[in-house]
């Protein structure tokens, strides 16, 4: 953790490959992997991305090498980077998640992806999944939730009661873009996850509501493009902050935002926001 910043800057899961861009990952206080599922997944057919007015849609579909190959090949290579590792874990039932958690050791934290908009939802509830993972591991467990739930604070309370150590807020929201020439959806899967600046007010509201409801440590994310966005999330109760879509257009964003956060004038604002989040009702 960077003491100067009072927080950790991470990447949002699925927004960086530390093995193809190690220099970008080394600019972060932790690298969050793409979500790992028990079996390998090719992901969805292309086109998988579309730009929107103030955001983008993706329907990658949890492309990943699967648990076995991740543990044998990918994880050892990631360890060589010397960056604290957060492992994003996914699945289709509580046992899927718990088995991956049980196989993990010596990592910074586990993020349970309970909210990918691009695959069919797990049959078990978020709280059931967290409870199963809690029994499987002593590692810090962060539950990644969707702001699409009608009462996300209630879900936050439920996962807190089930043993979550923290929350990752927010995942993308489901959206769709139409190709003006064909009047067909741009994405092969039609719907995808909406991210980017358009998501920021949703992220602020969700972090605010879930921090008020649980007081759990929160990794805030959603539309962060600059230091002020980080301050805003912290003011709403986030303890750490993750960068997502901004990494696509600016691989230097971690360094740029860190530099701006430690600049003299923003430092005071940031300290004030941090204190405020500690006393939020």
């Amino acid at each position: 953790m960077s003491k100067d910043l009072f927080l950790r800057l991470l990447n949002a899961s699925g927004c960086l490959d530390a093995l193809t861009a190690p220099e970008v990952a080394r600019g972060l206080d932790g690298f969050v992997t793409k979500t790992i599922t028990p079996l390998p997944r090719e992901g969805n057919a292309p086109p998988r991305i579309a730009e929107t007015a103030h955001g983008m849609l993706n329907a990658i579909g949890l492309a990943n090498p699967g648990r076995e190959r991740f543990l044998a090949d990918t994880l050892p290579q990631l360890r060589e980077l010397g960056v604290p590792l957060w492992i994003s874990v996914g699945g289709f039932c509580a046992a899927d998640y718990a088995e991956t958690c049980a196989a993990l050791e010596d990592v910074e934290a586990v993020e349970l992806n309970l909210s990918c908009p691009n695959v069919d939802e797990a049959a078990d509830s978020a709280a059931e999944i967290v409870a199963a993972c809690r029994r499987a591991t002593a590692l810090p467990l962060y539950a990644k939730l969707s702001a699409a739930h009608p009462d996300v604070a209630e879900v936050a309370r439920a996962v807190a009661a089930a043993g979550a150590d923290g929350l990752s807020l927010v995942n993308t929201l489901r959206g769709l873009a139409i190709d003006p020439r064909t009047l067909q959806p741009v994405l092969a899967r039609a719907q995808g996850g909406l991210s980017g600046p358009t998501l920021k007010p949703v992220a602020l509201a969700t972090v605010f509501a879930c921090y008020s409801a649980t007081k759990l440590p929160i990794v805030g994310m959603g539309g962060v493009t600059c230091a002020q966005d980080v301050v805003d999330l912290v003011a709403c109760g986030a303890q750490d902050v993750a960068l997502g879509t901004v990494l696509f257009s600016d691989p230097d964003a971690p360094v740029r935002i860190r530099t701006d956060l430690t600049s003299a004038d923003l430092d005071e604002v940031f300290a004030a926001a941090y204190k405020k989040s500690a006393v939020l009702a």
Binding site: D17, R48, F248, S249, P251
Partner: peptide, 12 residues
């Protein structure tokens, strides 16, 4: 192909 990042980050 449509690309968001160009350096392997987005899988798009």
């Amino acid at each position: 192909a449509p690309m968001a990042c160009g350096y392997g980050a987005c899988y798009g």
